[in-house]
Design a binder for these strands. Structure first.
Length: 203
DNA sequence: CGGCCGATCAGCT
DNA sequence: GCTGATCGGCCGA
């Protein structure tokens, strides 16, 4: 089941390029006992740092919360939102660009029973990881993972998955950033065309 | 120090 | 489609 683990060079890209390349890759988060829980990434969004009015790093903003966005490519940026949800991002790009890719949905792969225990036994598989908050809950990701280096860290990383054919990606505007002026409508969301595990289908 | 609001979700209607 | 839940971060005073 496991594939080639991503190295620093794989993350050293601008967010738009990485957002597309992450589609079809596998996000893995192992339990304390070493059990693999994973899903195939089917939906991402790119956040382009200082000029991006939707980015936490807009205008070069640097605070305690977003500090890890400046820590270099390959770190996990996890933040808490709406008083109850977490969102998982992969920091990328050059050292101080504060680029990041928000992972918005996974197709559950390994450890689905554990995901169900975390999310609720009644939840349909296609909804287990369909949304940034839902996937963090299912994968067991919270602020403890903020700042982790996906290169070399135990238990949280991205790896190649066996391709089942060419992935058709559809680009749309990002979700929930209507306040971001002209940046709200830029096509910075990538979805595997027609995938049932996305938070909202596209293509 | 106070007030506003968000890269969301679940449960209704 | 609409709305309440729920709270830390951020900004202005």
């Amino acid at each position: 089941m496991s594939g080639r683990r991503w190295t620093r060079a794989d993350y050293d890209l601008d967010a738009a390029t990485l957002a597309e390349r992450l589609l079809g890759a596998r996000l893995v988060h192992c339990t304390a006992s070493g059990r693999r829980v994973s899903g195939i990434i089917v939906e991402t969004e790119a956040y382009l740092g200082a000029p991006d009015l939707a980015s936490h790093a807009v205008g070069g903003r640097r605070t305690k919360r977003n500090e890890v966005m400046y820590a270099g490519a390959g770190r996990a940026y996890v933040y808490f939102i709406y008083g109850m949800h977490h969102c998982f991002n992969v920091v990328c790009g050059g050292e101080h660009t504060a680029h990041a890719v928000l992972v918005r949905a996974l197709r559950p792969d390994e450890g689905i029973e554990l995901m169900r225990r975390r999310r609720g036994a009644e939840v349909a598989e296609r909804l287990l990881c369909a949304g940034p908050g839902r996937l963090c809950r299912a994968m067991g990701i919270d602020l403890r993972q903020n700042g982790m280096d996906l290169v070399g860290a135990r238990g949280l990383f991205v790896e190649d998955a066996a391709a089942e054919g060419a992935i058709r990606a559809v680009r749309t505007a990002r979700i929930g950033v209507g306040y971001a002026g002209e940046w709200a409508s830029k096509p910075l969301r990538w979805v595997v065309a027609g995938d049932r595990h996305a938070s909202r289908r596209a293509g």
